[in-house]
């Protein structure tokens, strides 16, 4: 399991820029970022190194940020990679709240898929039992 940072943002011009500028000035490299957006607000989801420290920086600068545990599954960057994971969730009746993916730095031929599910611990065991690779914080290269 890995720790993702979620930042709540009202839909105002320049808000995301403020977040990224703040992180840049603190030398935080954003490994990946995904945005959920509605007409009125957005939620930015970031994977960064030392998420606890980054959440503190955000909060100290009056951003609404928190850590959310998510599952990161490593799959070959081939056709059918995502389907395999979703099959496991489907079989065990797990609902995926949201997901996004990015390509790994250390293995350019692999993709990392990030999932938000209700009970990540349980899903993690089920994925491992099916032979899938669930990776932890330290496995991600920043």
């Amino acid at each position: 399991m890995i720790k993702q940072i979620s930042v709540f943002m009202e839909n105002k011009p320049g808000r995301l820029l403020e977040v990224t500028k703040l992180l840049a000035s603190n030398k935080v490299n954003i490994r990946t970022l995904s945005l959920a957006d509605t007409a009125e607000f957005g939620i930015a989801r970031l994977i960064v190194d030392s998420p606890e420290a980054v959440v503190e920086i955000l909060k100290n600068n009056r951003f609404t940020a928190r850590i959310t545990p998510v599952l990161a599954v490593e799959v070959p960057d081939d056709a059918g990679g995502l389907a395999k994971v979703l099959e496991v969730f489907s079989e065990s009746g797990v609902n995926v709240e949201y997901m996004y993916g990015f390509v790994e730095k250390r293995h350019p031929d692999k993709a990392l898929l990030v999932f938000k599910v209700e009970d990540p611990e349980r899903s993690k065991d089920q994925l491992i039992a099916k032979g899938l690779t669930v990776i932890s914080e330290k496995d991600i290269m920043f």
Binding site: S6, F8, A36, T38, F41, I43, R45, T64, R66, T68, E97, Y98, K116
Partner: peptide, 9 residues
């Protein structure tokens, strides 16, 4: 726990 759109909505 605002991480999901549906929670806020």
């Amino acid at each position: 726990g605002f991480d999901e759109v549906k929670v806020i909505e």
